[in-house]
Design a protein around this nucleic acid. Structure first.
Lengths: 199, 199
DNA sequence: GAGACTATCTATAAGAC
DNA sequence: TGTCTTATAGATAGTCT
């Protein structure tokens, strides 16, 4: 959005890098604020400059809360955190009981029924834990697959663009007259160079 | 940046809000990525949609690390959340330990050797299956992460090539006529090479 | 409900001071 | 260094598919 297109790589000149950082940083924060207001969503944005200075933005809820929510997102079921907390409480309770019973030298005195019940409870607790683990992994895989898809698409686009440019360069010395109306190009127009009319 | 200026307030129409969220979210994430690359800074961006879906971006260092750094910056740790997470982790560990302790010393007391053996075998099979499942999922995740890395690298390379080519063209000495104003091309101008009329 | 299109608006890279 | 200006690249609202 400036006088010329900029390459997507680290700006080597320290001064311009600083200027760009300042400009874009405020732009980014502004955009984050707009998104949070327009769409009524929670956003947390943290930026560390190379010198270690911290810049941040967060929507009304506050950065800490959002970050906390972020962490919880991977630890708890999104369905109902109530259930998770309850499960956690009962599991912990169960553990205490079992542990105290195991610590005593006469574990054998536990009745068979006690053991059966304990086993059942432990089994259920284990199942929940396993299910949670599996779900988290599945989510992770889904996210990654989505990322891959997007990257592949972007890649393809770039390759076509690149190929089109090369072709264009090869034809560089020829006399070329303007475009046909680009509106007729449809989808391809956005992917490759419109083939110019040659004389 | 659209057909008309938009008021900076929550978009009431649910549908447009959703569309705007999708569009601006990707725009914001793109800008965050650009800033992190151009200025070599660390950025963490977390967005929760109103439905509780999580979207995130983070520069190379990874979101967790940056958030960690953020927390260190303020030394504001939420003890409650930390405790919950710790509990969940150690909880899982303990369950495994306790279960194995329960199984071992009491096998004889059940005195149904066949059943016990069968159970053991089934248990082993189950364990193996679970382990295998976990391993496969982990491998899947690793592979996808690797893929992502490669695709990103390839992408960057292509973008540089592309940029170099354009620069090359710009520096050409040819006399150029017509369509010097790319604005007439609309969006296409940014995606395809603006092949001007050459003489 | 995700993408393509395009007019229009915004951000920002360079310049100017 | 900072601030203002300007030309241009980039983002996106409305629309259609």
């Amino acid at each position: 959005m400036g006088r010329r297109k900029v390459q997507m790589k680290r700006i080597e000149d320290k001064s311009s890098r600083q200027v760009t950082f300042s400009k874009r940083r405020s732009g980014l924060i502004k955009k984050a604020r707009e998104l949070s207001v327009l769409c009524d969503v929670e956003i947390a944005l943290v930026i560390f400059s190379s010198r270690g200075r911290l810049y941040e933005f967060s929507s009304a809820d506050g950065l800490t809360k959002i970050l906390e929510r972020y962490r919880c997102h991977y630890e708890q079921e999104s369905e109902a955190s109530k259930d998770v907390n309850e499960a956690l409480r009962s599991h912990t309770e169960l553990l205490h009981i079992v542990q105290s019973q195991l610590e005593e030298p006469n574990v054998e005195q536990l009745s068979l029924m006690d053991l059966v019940n304990l086993e059942k409870q432990l089994d259920m607790a284990l199942s929940e834990t396993r299910a949670r683990k599996t779900q988290l992994m599945m989510e992770s895989i889904m996210t990654l697959q989505e990322k891959e898809k997007l990257l592949r698409a972007e890649n393809e686009l770039l390759e076509r663009e690149s190929a089109a440019m090369e072709k264009n360069e090869d034809e560089g010395n020829e006399v070329v007259i303007g475009f046909s109306n680009h509106q007729y190009l449809g989808n391809l127009g956005s992917l490759c160079c419109p083939t110019p009319t040659r004389l």
